[in-house]
Amino acid sequence: MDGLNMATIAEWVRIDAERVIEGLQDAREMLDSANGELVLDFSSVRRIDAGAVTALQTLAATADEKTVKVVLRGVNIEMYKVLKLVKLTRRFSFLT
């Protein structure tokens, strides 16, 4: 298949505002089957707590190991500020 551009369909996970940590743990388990890219939709999440930050750090580490690109979609500015403060923005891609 050398020289052929393949369109890939990324895995898409919607993060539930009430179950952010659990959603991120589920997403981590999906990394093996993610086909190189995993999109996490945070559109319904207004804020994250320390537990969710830890879960995102763990997810980023696992994604690095498995060389999967993780894209965060619909992250609001308040949450983005938190991710910036804990230096997590550089470990993800962002999609508005």
């Binding site: 609001n76 500020k81 962002f94």
Partner: peptide, 11 residues
């Protein structure tokens, strides 16, 4: 958008 503008300002 406003969100994009704020995000770039934060960056």
């Amino acid at each position: 958008s406003v969100d994009e503008a704020l995000k770039v300002c934060v960056d």
